[in-house]
Design a protein around this nucleic acid. Structure first.
Lengths: 339, 339
DNA sequence: CCATTATCGGTAATCGCTTCACTGATCTTT
DNA sequence: AAAGATCAGTGAAGCGATTACCGATAATGG
């Protein structure tokens, strides 16, 4: 592998000049010299060593991604996929690479080391669980940080998210407008900030409309189809079963569609169903899923952009909250007539 | 940020000793000295600088990922998700981070530089398009490379894939066994190696069973629902329409399910449908999709493992080909009776 | 009792690059 | 014509680690 010294020797100048030419440093260089250096670099197939460069310039041109402490499989679900896709697109545009820390975040002392090794210019904390010290842990390392899908809790750490509360209210409003009164909510992993907000949005939405929610109408389930089927069966076995169901995310809503088929429950005939996220597959299911749009790619791209702005020393807003949108498809309808 | 010198000073030893202690180097160190060093490192919140370490040791403990030159969105579809998930899991286990090169591969001269910057210990080339010089381009940089989802074309570059030809034949056999004779194939992007193999597998499978395939029974479509619907409509408008359809991947098959509903075509009543990949959603669709299992996570994990083995100087097999499996669900059935 | 060896530790070179401080020319300006 | 300015380029000091090489002491054996 050729080094900068080889290029200097080959073009008859000092390493300083080579460095200046290759980095387009703001400093006069004779046009002919420049060409000689460039030619030599090409001829020797020279590529500056990223480690050496990073060591002295303290810049790596790469963005770290730290996932939260949830199972690794969740890392590559549709959620993480969407976020990552946006980050990659933005990174490509601004010439930053993406560095994924494979170990999950535990706490600042244990997990800090890899990040503090200065391997990246900044870190994106993806959907930290509630109570995580990731934002403060990274901030104390004096590294620019942007949090995705949760408030950072720190004034100088920006975060990007969708307005989950508003989204949940849009869902509730839609169901109320259709004439539903007995509306249930299906939750899952409550360690996620977004899910808590959605549940809260559902509850306050109902409350503001003057509707009370029976405690047995708020149930929690896992991602396993069997559990989902059971939750549905239990809800429908209630003396006064719900006529509509708001599910915390599309993944579970899609599974619930399957569960409903298995239980011979007609959707939206006997039960209206609304999800959250607007996954690619929401439009392909049978019936197509009514849901709330969650702009994952935009969120990822914005987070990356804010992080890069911070890295490059520009001021950035404290947060960027996207507005969700109701997407009406075929899984919601007016409630069935009383029998 | 504390450096190794600070730790040395704080514990009253030389930097050598600090380095030896921290790296558990094979060299005797007094137990008490060791403790002093460790304590000082902890107290100063010291973390070795990855750049400095990488510069001298020529090891970064990270795996590069180079995507092929397809649209970035494809980078984070279910395919890339699955592969990435496996890579991450393996990386986590073996303490390697993952570095995503955001720029897509163009050719060895243009795209080589980022990789040759020695930022990673090796590179995984994900699904290079046919004719890509990525394997040779990386190999010439003298970096360990493993190719995913395509043959590397180079004897010393291992690759990992599923047996697409066998998979396609399993699909054909299944349909033939059900009694179908008029079987069509729906292809898409033919620049991908896997899709070419699947098409070839379909064709030879049919041929070996003594069935001829009419040219209009092999059609190509895009990922856009409209195009898929049109392709389906055209196939069914044929004088002797197919009774079964083998689709090159589940994504398109799932869209096709939707298209069939829109066109009022019963699946599997009038048309049997079989996909390829066994996406998470294949089991949730209505009807549940019969398909061929493509072990993406295993492929990703194996590719990462092979790369790490190579990096660490161990011998690895030239390739690792996974065997696909037929997963029978509800989208295939015997052909309808003649009318 | 001296040579040998095991143990414990230090000095300094090195990795490949950026950048500060500086030197000569050549060109303006008063 | 002397004094700045500007232009083009060099030398050397790091950046923060690893590691080859060497030194000193204590234990061991013939």
């Amino acid at each position: 592998m050729a080094t900068i010294h080889d290029v200097a020797k080959a073009s008859g100048v000092s390493v300083t000049t080579v460095s200046v030419v290759l980095n387009n440093a703001p400093r006069p260089v004779n046009a002919e010299t420049r060409q000689r250096v460039l030619a030599a670099a090409r001829r020797l197939n020279y590529h500056p060593n990223a480690m050496a460069r990073g060591l002295v310039s303290r810049r790596t041109h790469s963005l770290g991604i730290q996932f939260s402490s949830v199972e690794p499989s969740v890392v590559t679900n549709y959620y993480a996929s969407g976020i990552l896709s946006g980050i990659l697109a933005e990174g490509a545009m601004r010439k930053y690479d993406i560095h994924l820390f494979t170990s999950l975040w535990e706490n600042a002392t244990v997990s800090g080391s890899r990040i503090k090794a200065q391997r990246t210019d900044g870190v994106l904390a993806i959907s930290p669980v509630i109570g995580s010290d990731i934002a403060s842990g990274l901030e104390q390392a004096n590294l620019p940080v942007v949090v995705v899908s949760a408030p950072s809790g720190l004034p100088n750490v920006p975060y990007v998210d969708v307005d989950n509360i508003l989204g949940a209210r849009l869902a509730v409003e839609h169901l109320l407008e259709l004439g539903h009164t007995r509306i249930a909510y299906l939750a899952t992993d409550r360690t996620m900030h977004s899910e808590r907000e959605r549940e809260a949005g559902f509850l306050t939405g109902m409350q503001e409309a003057g509707r009370s929610v029976a405690p047995e109408f708020v149930v929690s389930t896992s991602y396993v189809l069997g559990d989902i089927t059971q939750s549905l069966a239990r809800l429908l076995a209630l003396p006064a079963p719900p006529t509509a169901l708001f599910v915390c995310n599309d993944n579970i809503a899609l599974s619930l569609l399957k569960a409903a088929r298995d239980l011979n429950v007609s959707i939206p005939g006997t039960l209206s169903l609304i999800g959250f996220d607007d996954t690619d597959l929401a439009s392909l299911s049978a019936p197509a899923l009514t849901t709330i749009r969650h702009p994952l790619r935009d969120i990822g791209a914005t987070a990356a952009r804010l992080l890069i702005e911070r890295i490059e020393g520009r001021a950035v807003p404290e947060r960027h909250i996207f507005t969700p949108e109701l997407v009406v498809r075929a899984s919601t309808a007016p409630p069935p007539h009383r029998t």
